[in-house]
C-alpha cells in the first residue's frame, strides 16, 4: 500500500499516463495480417472454385421424316482424321485413307505439344495456302473408338481450341478401311 502510494505521488503523472496508453492500444498488426490472409483465401477460393466448361455443338440428328441430306463433297486436302484409341494412343491421317496427302499416311501420335499438336499446327498454316482461300482451312474429324476415354475426347477438343481449328466434328462411324487401324490401336 505504501509503495503504491509513493509510486503514485513520487513517480510522476507521466508514468501513469504512459502505462494507461499502452493498455488502451492493443497491437493490431497481427490481427490485421490474419484478417487479410483470410480475405485473400476466401476471395481466391470463391472465384477459382467455379468449374470451367467447354462448349460443344453437335450437328442435329436427322429425323426419319426429314428429306435425305445430299452429301456434300469436301476437299480431301483439308481433312485430317484422328482416331482415338485405348491407352492414350492416336492414329491419324491426312486426306483419304487409301490416298493420303503427302506426309499424311496413317501413323501413330501421342497427345500434347510433341504429338498431334505439332502436325495440326503445321496443317493449320499450310492448308489455307494449298486451297488458296483463308476460309477453307483444316477440318479435323475426331473418331473416338469404344476403348478411348472421355479424357481423350476432351484432350482432343482442347487441341482444337489450342490449334485454333475452326471446323471439327466428332464422328462415330468408322470406314471399312479404318477397321485395321482401330483394331491395331485397341488390340
Amino acid at each position: 500500500m505504501a509503495e503504491l502510494n509513493t509510486g503514485d505521488g513520487g513517480g510522476g503523472k507521466g508514468g501513469k499516463v504512459r502505462s494507461k496508453k499502452q493498455n488502451s492500444k492493443v497491437d493490431l498488426t497481427a490481427m490485421v495480417d490474419l484478417a487479410f490472409l483470410l480475405i485473400t483465401f476466401f476471395m481466391l477460393t470463391t472465384s477459382l472454385s467455379k468449374p470451367q466448361s467447354m462448349d460443344l455443338g453437335m450437328p442435329a440428328k436427322p429425323k426419319p421424316t426429314d428429306p435425305p441430306i445430299k452429301s456434300l463433297p469436301v476437299d480431301q486436302r483439308r481433312t485430317v482424321t484422328v482416331i482415338l484409341g485405348a491407352n492414350d494412343k492416336i492414329k491419324w491421317y491426312h486426306g483419304l485413307i487409301d490416298a493420303p496427302e503427302e506426309g499424311g499416311k496413317p501413323q501413330d501420335a501421342g497427345y500434347g505439344s510433341e504429338g498431334i499438336r505439332k502436325e495440326l499446327l503445321k496443317r493449320v498454316k499450310s492448308i489455307p495456302l494449298v486451297t488458296g482461300d483463308k476460309d477453307k482451312g483444316l477440318i479435323v474429324i475426331i473418331k473416338p473408338t469404344s476403348k478411348s476415354t472421355y479424357k481423350n475426347l476432351v484432350d482432343m477438343l482442347d487441341e482444337m481450341a489450342i490449334c485454333d481449328v475452326k471446323t471439327y466434328a466428332i464422328v462415330n462411324d468408322f470406314l471399312p478401311l479404318e477397321k485395321p487401324l482401330t483394331d491395331e490401336l485397341n488390340k
Binding site: 468449374p51 467447354m54 462448349d55 455443338g57 453437335m58 442435329a60 505439344s113 499446327l121 489450342i162 490449334c163
Partner: peptide, 21 residues
C-alpha cells in the same frame, strides 16, 4: 441429341494455356 439438344457444356478442370507459335 434425341431431344434436339445439340449444344452442351463439358465440365473440365483448369490447365495452363500452352504457348503456340
Amino acid at each position: 441429341q434425341d431431344q434436339d439438344i445439340n449444344n452442351f457444356n463439358l465440365v473440365t478442370g483448369l490447365r495452363a494455356k500452352p504457348k503456340t507459335n
